[in-house]
């Protein structure tokens, strides 16, 4: 009779020590009126977005971006476009530590707190940190919950949004 071995934890000491560490900091190019219009057209397609997202814009009446607008989607200063890491170890790979021995990644959800809106001309800086690791027993085995906190500020240091994203790995 063979003894079944049960995984007690997938959170290594190295992973535990990485909690709170910065994953990345990035600063956007100035948000253009065209960026805002294109985003709004895409998310309201095939109908027209509200006029406030597609107007003339400019210094006298800068456009306001939709709340969920992403100014980092394409290039950012000093960052070369690269293929995203879609492996289950993407988080630890960013930190340069050994990933847990898990192969499946599920999106566990997102919590967002909004501050001041993003406007045409704004430059957004984002700092992303590893927030926490927790585990829970699920139907398919031990689930590893990994949360990341991403804080965005504008060029005046005002908080634009704080996002906590959770991925579930098994």
């Amino acid at each position: 009779m063979s003894e079944a071995t049960e995984t007690v934890t997938n959170i290594s000491e190295e992973m535990r020590n990485a909690i709170g560490r910065e994953l990345s900091t990035r600063t956007s190019y100035p948000i253009s009126a065209s960026d805002i219009r294109k985003w709004a057209i895409a998310v309201y397609f095939p109908e027209s977005p509200p006029e406030r997202f597609v107007g003339a814009g400019g210094p006298d009446a800068p456009l306001t971006a939709p709340e969920e607008f992403n100014p980092f989607a394409w290039a950012a200063p000093g960052k070369k476009p690269k293929k995203p890491d879609v492996t289950a170890g993407f988080l630890e790979n960013q930190l340069g530590i050994t990933p847990p021995p898990l192969s499946t990644v599920l999106n566990g959800g997102t919590v967002v707190e909004y501050g001041v809106p993003m406007m045409e001309g704004d430059v957004i800086t984002a700092t992303n940190r590893l927030d926490n690791y927790t585990e829970k027993q699920g139907k398919r085995g031990l689930l590893l919950f990994s949360s990341m906190k991403d804080e965005w500020t504008n060029q005046r240091g005002e908080m634009v949004k704080r996002t906590t994203s959770t991925v579930i790995r098994l």
Partner: peptide, 8 residues
């Protein structure tokens, strides 16, 4: 909108 959550 002050805050927003989503779970897929």
């Amino acid at each position: 909108i002050c805050n927003f959550t989503i779970q897929w």
